[in-house]
Simulated assay, not measured.
Amino acid sequence: MEGRKRKRRFDFFVPLMAIIIGYFAFVLVSQQVHLGQLAENQAAAEARLSAAQEENEALKEEKAALSDPAYIEKIAREELGMTRHGELPYTTARK
């Protein structure tokens, strides 16, 4: 009986392990890509936060300056073209 050829069964272990390893490699790579996107989103959000904080500080400074009568007069003269009573506005001719 030893001289007979044995039927060779298909071994499922090697393909099964290859599939399992492939699945875990795919999951690992997709998680790394997702983490990279999250890091980019976080950096963009931090940049927007920093810009908003700077704008907030500038607006607080302007609000504080608006309580100063000299600053109010300067803004009224420069941006609105207002004058005091009895003053004549001076404008230059543009060519």
Rank of each mutant, 00 (worst) to 15 (best):
M1F: 11
A65P: 02
L88H: 05
Y71K: 09
F10Y: 13
V33Q: 11
A47E: 13
I75H: 00
R94A: 09
A93E: 08
I72V: 15
L35S: 15
T83S: 10
K5E: 12
I20E: 07
E79T: 07
F13E: 15
Q37F: 14
E62Q: 12
S30V: 14
S67W: 00
V29G: 04
M1S: 11
E79Q: 13
I19N: 08
Q37W: 12
M17R: 15
R6T: 14
S50N: 10
R94Y: 00
E40A: 15
R84D: 05
F26A: 15
A65Y: 00
A65E: 11
G86M: 03
A43K: 12
F10P: 07
A39D: 10
L28V: 02
A44L: 10
S50K: 13
A52R: 07
T83H: 06
D68P: 02
Y23G: 14
A76C: 07
L35R: 12
Y90M: 06
D11N: 15
Y23C: 15
E57I: 14
A47R: 11
L88G: 05
A70L: 10
K7L: 14
E57D: 06
E73H: 01
M82H: 03
P69K: 02
T92A: 09
P89L: 07
L38M: 13
K95E: 08
V33W: 04
A39T: 08
Q37S: 14
R4K: 12
G22I: 00
A52P: 02
K63M: 10
P69H: 01
A43C: 05
E62L: 15
A44V: 10
F12K: 08
V33E: 08
A51E: 11
Q32K: 11
K5S: 12
E87L: 03
S30W: 04
D68K: 03
L80I: 02
G86Q: 05
R9L: 15
A70G: 01
M17P: 01
D68S: 08
R48H: 07
I21F: 08
K74G: 01
L16H: 05
M1T: 09
A51H: 05
Q32A: 12
I20Q: 09
E40F: 04
H34L: 11
P15Q: 04
N41H: 05
T91I: 04
K60W: 01
H85C: 01
E54H: 09
Q53I: 12
R48W: 02
Q31V: 04
I75D: 00
P69S: 01
N56S: 15
I72K: 07
E40T: 05
E55W: 00
Y71F: 14
R77L: 03
V27P: 01
R77I: 13
V29H: 06
H85Q: 08
I19K: 14
